[in-house]
Amino acid sequence: MAQFLFFLLALICVISILGFILSKNQIYNALCLVVAFTAMGGLFSLLDAPFVAVVQIIIYAGAIVVLFLFVIMMIDVRKGIPPEKNRWTLYLSVGISLVLAAEFAFSLSKAICFLKTPATKEIGNPTALGHILFTKYIYPFEITSVLIVTAIVGAIVLAKKREEE
């Protein structure tokens, strides 16, 4: 069952990202991402991380991508922009990313025995997650909250229409 779910979700994920790449319409792009990120959430829950899975679906799929949608609507580019015409940049980037992928794969192959068997320890417990978040990671947590406030204020200041304009 788990294997089936994994392959299903992985397939959805990859196909929707391919759709994202191929579609010219920005709205479709964003919707493809919603699907991909939701499937990603499913993958997270398969990995014993229910809390992160829920956060992924609510914040990523629900909030961030919707933010993108709003901006797309505000900018209102009537017809989509066709993909890159400058071919050599594209080929070069694809080449380099394949090299990168090969490098990753090589490094993975070294650690493969280690990654084959999951740890037996129970890690999915949201209580434990909350505990460690508010003890060991309390300072990063607080700093992140400051970052969020700064980002919100900054975004408003940047995007606000000035009176004189």
């Binding site: 090299v99 990168l100 490098e103």
Partner: peptide, 20 residues
């Protein structure tokens, strides 16, 4: 932007290669 990103990508690839 694309040119800069390309150089960035190349740098990452080279650096990772150096590490490996």
């Amino acid at each position: 932007i694309k040119d800069y990103a390309l150089v960035f990508l190349l740098g990452v690839a080279l650096f990772l290669g150096y590490l490996l």
